[in-house]
């Protein structure tokens, strides 16, 4: 099994359709424009990686898909359809069924996502009983199967462990097991490997890739790490100041980045062979989302910026089919 990038499942039906999603956090002091018009589709069995730095809106986008944002503070607009559900219109009870049943989420820090006072086995079994109404014995049997599925060694013994008794890597595996307990069609992953050591990070990435294939799930994974995208993504979307500034197939985006921000991100990522070379750092810092500049949000840091960039948000351009970037310098 080599060159796994190319044997993709045939794209069949659309699992996720997001249209013009925007999220604002409103408070007395300021309105933070976290997500500003994001649209994308995800096919069943496809892996989309959203790449971005802190404050780019990538985690907020993910949480909006699960409606995990605080309802009174976050104003969500646009349309989200996941597996036929109009997510923004789901009533509370249906939303509970949807979370875990249709779409599940895993987080960066499993210690805060898992309940410290229940064993791993109980937490998985409870999830199954809540969603599928099975007997306790059946749920326990499934819990054991799930721990084996995520390759936790001596799974039977681990069912009785509390989260604090597990190492970081095992905890992350346990969280994945809970997320998969009710066979969701969509898995959302928010920086799932960022807090892990290098040798454990690659294990978890390979596990996610294998599970995604075997279970045919759609996956949306959020990360700041280009290397993670390279290992797992079918498609990549690069986010900056709440917008997708570039998206396309992973090989295409990583080999031929179109947007100056993506190019800058590649240039400033330290990798082998750069010793003694001056890093092509992007000057400045990401914009304040409470005071976004008009036009292209990257213009203040862009080496190619001109007046037209600051006038209006650049439209999506597709010089190559399936490869989109928002930059006025691209001839469409």
């Amino acid at each position: 099994m080599q060159a796994t990038a190319l044997d993709r499942p045939a794209v069949t039906d659309t699992l996720v359709a997001v249209r013009d999603l925007s999220v604002r956090f409103v408070s007395k002091e300021a309105t933070v424009h976290a997500v500003n018009g994001v649209s994308f589709d995800l096919a069943a069995g496809e892996v989309l990686v959203i790449l971005g730095e802190s404050g780019s809106g990538k985690s907020v986008t993910l949480r909006a898909l699960m409606r995990l944002l605080p309802p009174r503070k976050a104003v969500i607009e646009g349309a989200i359809r996941i597996a036929g559900h109009d997510v923004l219109a789901l009533p509370p009870r249906a939303l509970e069924d949807f979370r875990g049943g249709v779409a599940s989420m895993i987080f960066q820090e499993p210690m805060t996502a898992l309940d410290p006072v229940f064993t791993i086995g109980t937490q998985i079994a409870e999830t199954i009983i809540r969603h599928e109404g099975t007997s306790r014995a059946e749920a326990d049997r499934r819990a054991l199967e799930l721990l084996e599925l995520v390759q936790i060694p001596s799974a039977k013994r681990r069912l009785g462990n509390y989260p604090h008794e597990l190492s970081g890597g095992l905890r992350q595996r346990a969280m994945i097991a809970i997320a998969l307990a009710c066979r969701p069609r969509l898995l959302l992953a928010d920086e799932p490997t960022t807090a892990l050591d290098a040798t454990v990070q690659i294990q978890i990435l390979l596990l996610l890739r294998r599970l995604q294939r075997e279970l045919g799930m759609g996956v949306i994974l959020v990360t700041h790490d280009l290397g993670v995208a390279g290992e797992i993504a079918d498609r990549v979307a690069v986010m900056y100041a709440g917008r997708f500034v570039e998206s396309g197939m992973v090989e295409e985006v990583m080999k031929r980045p179109l947007h100056p921000y993506t190019q800058g991100l590649m240039g400033s990522t330290v990798h082998a062979g750069l010793r003694g070379v001056r890093l092509a750092a992007i000057p400045g810092a990401p914009p304040d989302l409470a005071r976004l500049p008009p036009g292209c949000a990257f213009a203040p840091r862009c080496p190619h910026a001109e007046d037209a960039c600051r006038a209006a948000v650049p439209a999506e351009k597709r010089p190559v089919p399936e490869h989109m970037a928002r930059c006025i310098r691209i001839a469409a």
Partner: peptide, 25 residues
């Protein structure tokens, strides 16, 4: 050797298939 091999390749055409190490430290 395992630590160095655990680095993602940054090349989607050359993805890792087996983790260099199993288990946690």
């Amino acid at each position: 050797r395992a630590l160095l091999a655990s680095r993602p390749s940054m090349d989607p055409a050359r993805r890792m298939t087996e983790p260099p190490l199993t288990g946690d430290p």
